[in-house]
């Protein structure tokens, strides 16, 4: 199975990754080889097998709704590439 350049561009768009044309070509070749390898899974009979997302039998964990320590706004925003007051600053979301 091989992935076309257009398929690679679509996936890159879904993943919000800008790729150069050279990246797209490399990615198409490499992902095709990896997907070919992964396709060996189709040989395994998994009828009636439940998916295992997690190795532990996890339950939801609850705690009392009490105030604990938390980061100050300044600490939380300290690594933001751009801020305005106590907010993260981003370009306009709707249109230009």
């Amino acid at each position: 199975m091989s992935l076309s350049a257009d398929e690679v561009r679509l996936v890159a768009d879904l993943a919000r990754l800008e790729l150069s044309d050279a990246d797209v070509a490399d990615m198409a070749t490499q992902l095709s080889a990896i997907v070919d390898y992964i396709n060996q899974l189709q040989r395994v009979n998994t009828d009636g097998v439940e998916p295992l997302a997690h190795a532990l039998d996890l339950r939801d964990v609850f705690r009392d709704d009490v105030l604990g320590q938390s980061l100050s706004a300044d600490a939380a925003l300290a690594n933001a590439p751009a801020r305005k007051g106590d907010f993260y600053r981003v370009p306009p979301v709707f249109g230009e």
Binding site: I38, L41, V44, P51
Partner: peptide, 13 residues
């Protein structure tokens, strides 16, 4: 792909 992998993961376990 993803769900198939999780099923084989259970067989590995």
């Amino acid at each position: 792909y993803y769900l198939k992998a999780l099923k084989v993961r259970r067989l590995i376990r």
